[in-house]
Amino acid sequence: MHIDLSGRTALVTASTQGIGHAIATGLARAGARVVVNGRGADRVEQVVRELRSATGNDAVVGAPGDLASDDGTAAVLRAVPQVDILVNNLGIFGATPPLEIDDEEWRRYFEVNVLAAVRLIRAYLPGMQERHWGRVLCLASDSAVAVPAEMIHYGMTKTSLLAVSRGFAKAAAGTGVTVNSVIAGPTHTEGVEEFVRQLVGDELPWDEAQHRFMLQHRPQSLIQRLIEPEEIAHMVVYLSSSYASATTGGALRVDGGYVDSILP
């Protein structure tokens, strides 16, 4: 399958590292004009240079801005007034005992993980509808369906993204625009490495720590390992293409079989 996204502009939020970085790389390799986003301008420009070199795509550009804030969102919208592909990847997570999550933390998680995505969809969806082509993708998580006891606030936001995606898919019905969620399973990123260490300790070698984490905290995984970010990116690139034109309102799983259900 040859995916050609030449002529399409894609904004990937929080794309200076982890899953977002892998998605930006995959879209750039498919020929899209990719907009890298992150909070720090220096880091964004560094990643832009790296991606141009790694992919041979000189159309990679940067749009720094904290999308959890009004000012940051406004800065990104000024820099990128229109996109064809919107990948809402921004998200925060962490383990906190459920009864210790206060109101401020609940609000912070909802603001960053949900409302930041909603604001961008509101901004970019009308233009996609007018052009009769567009792709909106929200990075959800297995935690949306199998909510972990140690991070209920995170699971709540990812469940919300499934509803957001489904609802906006209905709003875009018949326009040529698709809106989907991608349910990512436990994925190997720097942030997850820190999370694994938080749960199993710092003294173990990484391979053993990862193995213990999967057995003790994610035993439902059928692949019995952390997913690599590139594996998530493959699904996003496919859903961004013309091959996925009949897939909308869906929650597509790249979870290593973690969710014990035929449907999400």
Rank of each mutant, 00 (worst) to 15 (best):
E130K: 07
L199E: 07
E150Y: 14
V147T: 15
L199D: 10
V147R: 11
W206M: 11
P126K: 01
F195P: 01
A184V: 11
G155Q: 02
A171K: 09
L162D: 06
E193Q: 14
I183D: 00
D202K: 14
T187R: 00
V145L: 15
T178M: 02
G134T: 00
P205Q: 10
H153Y: 15
A173N: 06
R212D: 00
E194H: 13
A144F: 05
E208K: 14
M151I: 06
L137I: 15
G201H: 13
L137Q: 08
A171H: 14
V196E: 00
H188Q: 13
L161D: 03
W206H: 12
T175Q: 11
C138Q: 09
L162E: 11
V196G: 00
A172I: 01
T178R: 08
L161Q: 05
A169F: 05
S141L: 02
V192P: 02
R212W: 09
V145W: 04
R197K: 14
V179Q: 03
A171G: 09
V182F: 10
A169T: 06
R197W: 05
A209E: 01
N180Q: 08
D207L: 13
G191T: 13
V136E: 04
P126T: 05
Q129E: 14
A144D: 05
A173E: 14
V179D: 00
A172W: 01
H188I: 07
A146P: 07
L125C: 08
V182E: 00
E193N: 08
C138M: 11
G185E: 11
R212L: 15
I183S: 01
D142F: 11
G176F: 03
V179R: 00
L162N: 08
V182Y: 04
A209K: 10
G201T: 07
